[in-house]
Amino acid sequence: MLKRTGIPTSDDLQSVTPDKERLLEGPVAIIECFNEIPCDPCFYSCPFKAIKKFDDINDKPELDYSKCTGCGNCIASCPGLAIFVVDYPKNRLSLPYEFLPLPSVGDKVWGLNRAGKSICQVEVIKVKDPDKNDKTAVITIRLSKKYLMEVRHIKVGDLDE
């Protein structure tokens, strides 16, 4: 139960996941923002107007999967760190990361699920930390397809731990 544990349920997740067909087409944003809070920066960050304009600032974000290119611009704009980009065909996931040290390209790190459990090893393939992101780095990792929808965080450091 999301409200008791902080872990979204599969129902919650289903409501923000595009269908298989869209996933197979290429990268797309998954916005895991489940309660109506007064917040709207994600809308302003999307260059393709894929996130619908908020009628009411309390609305939940609504993504038009057909307009989303998976560019990842929105990831670092979200103060809730709730936006991820999944690239199904390429087995890639991009996520926001605000811890130091940042991993380096090529590093093998732990992939953590939404409950914080290390579930698999993943490979870092991109680290973006431009000034405009204001210290929220966007990390792209490669991982096994079956974990694409499970891994939502990484742990940098010794893999043996």
């Binding site: 999301l2 409200k3 544990t5 902080g6 872990i7 979204p8 895991e32 923002c33 489940f34 309660n35 809070i37 979200c78 103060p79 809730g80 760190l81 709730a82 953590l112 699920n113 939404r114 409950a115 914080g116 939502r152 965080h153």
Partner: peptide, 9 residues
């Protein structure tokens, strides 16, 4: 909940 999820994970 976004804050909760981000520490939970």
């Amino acid at each position: 909940l976004v804050h909760a999820s981000k520490i939970r994970r």
